[in-house]
Design a protein around this nucleic acid. Structure first.
Lengths: 186, 186
DNA sequence: TGATCCATGTAAGGAGTTACATGATTAA
DNA sequence: TTAATCATGTAACTCCTTACATGGATCA
């Protein structure tokens, strides 16, 4: 229902092929919207049929030829329409939270390793975000004085990712303390 | 792939009918895993066929009869197996983040109302969580001195929800400031 | 010589959403 | 008397995941 729009945003930020989009959905925009290459190719077909995107065949010597997609005027219109629509409640899926509640009916201590693993993943992602922030938005980089809306907004979204990871790391500390408190004798 | 398990956890916390489960998925466990009644009835059928849950027909005078489901021994086993499986990366869907990045290609100021609406929803949910925390885990409530693992873990999950809402409210303040900065002349 | 990267797809199946359907009771 | 609550379901459809498929170029 909105993968189309995530693709529009990504292609507006930089035109590219289905393959390149699939790679971006493994990082960058992929931290806020996931999609596999199968999904992406299918949706690109539909978007092309709807006239939201234009295709350009790019021949390459050493690599397979690719189709470079870019957003058409009609695609930009579709984005504008979507931006005005209120977001309807997103379906939530916090599997770890369900497991934590479920642990009460099994051995709570058995969850500790898994929670620690998640915390490591969040620490890694936080480090990755912070490195990206230094690289793309580091101090002394705005020399032009020009306010680029795209960059500002990408940075705002990145700050959200950073805040989210920090919150998760702190909360998982809390969860680990709780799990350990439930088996004080070991 | 895991709605079954969310239902197991909910039924272990308290047996109930499909209708009651659907209501719980609108609150409580529903804040961490959503499902509609159609989905729930379908999955309950499958879980019953797999022997994960037992049914008991409950006749009611004033209201329609209902089927009360409870978790069987085999269901408890299935939960234990699931708890030991590592969680695979969840598919993320932060539509608002995609919209914020997309706003660079339209009028960023047009998003302000929507972001404010979201912030209100997060404030409401925070208030709701805090009220629930006072009600269910308020100070001077653990008089029995008994450590109930289920309650402790439910509280830990609730604290996660509270931390999440607080983080979102703060981040959306940041986003609003950014959006307003991008149109300094109005 | 085997793995990884680039590049694009098809097919099958499972999960989730939306619409439709019924019918009694109770509160405004 | 209209709407909401309780209670259970079917049907159609879309969305998403997993598996399969191909084939050249590059690197260890």
């Amino acid at each position: 229902m909105a993968l189309e729009h995530a693709i529009l945003v990504s292609l507006l930020e930089k035109p590219g092929s289905g393959y390149e989009l699939a790679r971006r959905f493994e990082r960058s925009i992929g931290y806020f919207w996931t999609a596999t290459h199968q999904q992406i190719y299918r949706v690109l077909k539909r978007m092309e049929a709807d006239g939201w995107i234009d295709v350009r065949e790019v021949e390459q010597k050493t690599r397979p030829d690719k189709k470079e997609y870019s957003v058409s005027a009609r695609g930009l219109d579709a984005l504008a329409v979507w931006l005005q629509e209120p977001i309807q409640p997103e379906s939530v899926r916090h599997e770890l939270a369900v497991k934590i509640r479920g642990a009460a009916f099994d051995d709570p201590a058995a969850l500790i390793d898994e929670v620690e693993r998640h915390q490591r993943m969040h620490r890694d992602r936080l480090a990755h975000y912070l490195a990206g922030e230094r690289r793309d938005f580091g101090a002394g980089d705005g020399g032009s004085g020009e306010l680029d809306a795209g960059r500002e907004l990408q940075h705002a979204v990145l700050r959200g990712g950073i805040a989210y990871e920090r919150m998760m790391i702190a909360w998982l500390d809390d969860v680990l303390a709780t799990l350990r408190r439930l088996r004080p004798g070991r």
